[in-house]
Design a protein around this nucleic acid. Structure first.
Length: 205
DNA sequence: CATGGGATTGACT
DNA sequence: GTCAATCCCATGC
């Protein structure tokens, strides 16, 4: 299988990118959750067409699209599909693999909770900010690397995308089955065990 | 030029 | 469960 998912259609790319590694500024994690966005559906920023904000989405596949969300957070996307088509894969969660102490320091206020279990959390943990918008993910500073050759593709759980108000029924969210590093709300059938200490309300396993 | 709205998170009732 | 934070961009007058 080609190690270049960037030219694939956005849904295939979103599925293929689960299991890849993202690294930046001394930290790295394996992607456990993605979502697909495409200009032909209204939840995608590129739906409004080519503007100052969206032109990166129409650019070369393998480019980083980093934008500010709710005035507070930076969200990381991988631009996919051929140049001229507005499409991207949102990286929603990572399993921390390297530089975990540095991640904890960057997220000092939430050191006890999950470090990368959300699109705004992982950019904070990795030190990714808006200045990375437009960068080439194959050369860095943000690097995207394929899983080791021969590793089986992770089983995926599919569900509707999170946090949007348009095209809410499209099943374009993909989570690694069994991973407890996925963002909330966990999709049905994820198969991950609860983080502990939340049990007690009488529910048995 | 004024205004509305987020591809979210963490704190609080 | 509810809700504020915070700011750039897109839209409308």
């Amino acid at each position: 299988m080609s190690p270049d998912p960037f030219a694939l259609d956005v849904v295939a790319a979103a599925r293929a990118l689960v299991g890849w590694t993202v690294s930046h500024a001394g930290c790295a994690g394996v992607i456990v959750e993605t979502e697909a966005y495409h200009e032909r559906e209204p939840a995608c920023h590129a739906h409004i067409g080519l503007t100052a904000r969206t032109h990166i989405l129409f650019g070369a596949p393998g480019t980083a699209y980093v934008y500010r969300s709710y005035g507070i957070h930076a969200l990381l996307n991988v631009v996919v599909e051929p140049e001229g088509t507005g499409a991207a894969v949102l990286i929603r969660a990572l399993e921390p693999m390297a530089g975990v102490e540095l991640m904890r320091r960057r997220r000092a206020r939430q050191a006890g909770t999950d470090l990368c279990s959300g699109p705004g959390k992982l950019t904070q943990a990795l030190g990714i900010w808006l200045e990375r918008n437009g960068g080439d993910l194959r050369t860095g500073p943000i690097r995207l690397e394929p899983p080791p050759a021969g590793r089986a593709a992770p089983a995926l759980v599919t569900g509707p995308r999170v946090g949007i108000t348009k095209a809410v029924d499209l099943p374009w969210r993909f989570c690694a089955r069994g991973s407890r590093h996925v963002s909330r709300p966990w999709p049905p059938g994820l198969g991950a065990s609860r983080p502990r200490a939340q049990v007690g309300s009488g529910a048995a396993d």
